[in-house]
Every structure is written in structure tokens, then in C-alpha cells.
Computed example of a mutant assay.
Amino acid sequence: MSCEQLRLDNQLCFALYSTSLAMTKVYKPLLQALNLTYPQYLAMLVLWERDGITVSELSQRLLTDPGSVTPLLKRLEAEGLIRRIRSSSDERVVELHLTAKGRDLQHQAEAIPSCIVKATGQSTDELLSLKQELVELRARLLETL
């Protein structure tokens, strides 16, 4: 007695989850060359966009809570990629600043997006369209929370 709706291969959530796992596996060797984990890479992407943001702003950008990014940030600081500095106007606020080493790492990471495009076997236009659909799906799901 199997219900077709409950078959694993018919689940959107599993397609998204397993694709995310596969994508992370493709990133792994590329990021190992930079000595970064995937979550650290995401944090660095945000900091390369906007140096000097707060921990709260970073966690909002990554759609996570500040407590979960703190250990990741401590490791990035230990690696000499960022500095965490308490705000002079509000010591509860921690600002994140790239070091020279952190800024230099951006140049090494510049080849990663093209490696990912190549690994997918899809065109840039196809991937941009897929990304837009996923962003819209995420927004609709977040509206239900």
C-alpha cells in the first residue's frame, strides 16, 4: 500500500535537499583550495560585497540567526581573514571587517563561479532563470512562516 504522493522521488523538498548536497560537494574541492568551508565561503561572499557590516546584518543576509554564525566567524578570525570589532557607539554590536588576507582571498575565489557553471552543464542564462525561480519560491515559502 503505497501512496504516490509520499514517494521520496516525488517530493520537491527532497529534490531541493539532494541538489543542495550535490552542489555543496561540487564546491568542496574548490573551497578546500581556499581553506574555507561552504558556510564560511557564503559569509566571505557577503563581506566581499560589503565590508564592515554587523554580525546581525550578516546573519540576516544569510537567512540565519546570529548565534549560528558566531562560531563560523571565530574560525574566520582565527584564520586571519576577518576582524570582529565591537561598535564604539553600542558595545552589543559587533562589526565585521576584512583583513588584507581576507580581501586577497577574493581574487583566488573569482574562478569558482565559472567552475560551478561548467559543473552544471547548463548555460548561464538557464542557471540565472533557475536561480530566479528558486528565489521566488523561497520568498513565497518565507511568507507562510
Rank of each mutant, 00 (worst) to 15 (best):
R92Q: 15
G67Q: 12
K28G: 05
Y27H: 11
S20K: 09
C13M: 13
A78I: 05
D90Q: 13
M44D: 01
A15C: 11
E77L: 01
L96K: 04
L73K: 00
R61S: 15
E95R: 13
R86I: 03
Y38V: 10
L76N: 02
E91R: 13
I53G: 05
M23Q: 10
S89N: 13
V94H: 10
R86D: 07
R83A: 11
L63I: 06
G102Q: 01
P71F: 00
Q40E: 15
L36V: 07
T54I: 05
A43H: 00
Q60D: 15
L62M: 15
R103D: 07
S18V: 10
L21I: 09
R86H: 14
S59D: 08
S56P: 00
L21T: 08
E95Q: 14
L36E: 00
E57H: 04
L76D: 01
T24Y: 09
V46E: 13
V46K: 12
E57T: 12
G80K: 09
L105K: 11
A43T: 04
P29D: 08
K25C: 15
Y38N: 06
L16T: 08
S18I: 11
S20W: 10
Q60S: 09
S87L: 03
Q32S: 10
R75E: 07
P39I: 03
T54P: 06
R50V: 08
L34T: 02
Q60Y: 09
T64A: 13
G102N: 03
A78L: 11
K28F: 10
P66V: 02
R50W: 05
S88A: 14
P66Y: 04
G80F: 06
L81Q: 03
L81C: 08
K25W: 09
E79N: 08
R84V: 01
I53V: 14
P66I: 02
P39A: 04
A100Q: 15
L62P: 03
P66R: 12
N35H: 09
S56H: 08
G67W: 08
R86K: 13
S20P: 05
N35W: 03
S88F: 13
L73T: 00
K74T: 10
Q32E: 10
G67E: 07
